[in-house]
């Protein structure tokens, strides 16, 4: 068995955390591993688990579908690339920050904002899997765009911008959009019997 990460492109909540963590591993010079990523144009990537937005198949043969497990696995396997940071914040992000009800979400955003009063990162003084989890979930939440732009939570906006500036975070979103578009183009092509789409008069 070898590594592969599958990501569901139509998932209600896109699995950015698992995707970013995997790209961190792939981009690291220190480790000689590149985990292939495949996008599946569906709501789930697993035949056994309902609503699995991502699945990491490991060389040991396990199939991890919970993003918290994927992050924990990758940081245990590659601690120099991505230390775990805080499993509590990883779980908190996955449980709370995908929510699209602003009233509910804002209570938890206040917790994050106050956590970042005296902290530049979620945990310690470098990027950890906890930053990846919180950033990735917030990135997937459509409510967050204007919240971040308006600086409603000053600490969250500052921390979020720092990770955007890192380059590896936002790149994930671009990669995904590009790959999924390509996937859909191929699927359309296959459906039309390999013929190129022609404009009808």
């Amino acid at each position: 068995m070898s590594f592969i990460l599958s990501v569901a492109a139509k998932a209600a909540a896109v699995a950015y955390p698992a995707l970013i963590a995997t790209l961190f591993v792939n981009a690291a010079d220190a480790v000689d591993v590149s985990i292939p990523i495949e996008f599946v144009d569906d709501k789930t990537v697993s035949t056994e688990v309902k609503d699995a937005s991502a699945q990491l198949t490991t060389p040991e043969g396990s199939k991890l579908t919970a993003q918290a497990e994927i992050l924990a696995y990758l940081s245990e396997k590659f601690p120099t690339v991505l230390p775990l940071g805080s499993s509590e914040w990883i779980q908190f992000a996955l449980d709370k920050f995908y929510i699209k009800n602003f009233k509910e979400l804002s209570t938890d955003l206040e917790k994050l904002d106050s956590h970042l009063n005296f902290r530049s990162f979620i945990s310690g003084f470098q990027i950890s899997a906890a930053d990846v989890a919180v950033w990735g979930v917030l990135r997937a939440n459509p409510l967050m765009g204007s919240v971040l732009k308006n600086g409603v939570y000053a600490n969250i906006s500052r921390w979020y911008a720092l990770l955007v500036a890192d380059g590896r975070f936002d790149a994930v979103v671009d990669t995904m959009i590009k790959d999924v578009n390509e996937l859909r183009k191929q699927a359309k092509l296959a459906k039309s019997g390999g013929k190129k789409e022609s404009h009808k008069a």
Partner: peptide, 11 residues
């Protein structure tokens, strides 16, 4: 420093 992590921004 409210809106930027470092003195000159993000670096």
């Amino acid at each position: 420093l409210r809106s930027q992590t470092f003195i000159t921004g993000n670096k």
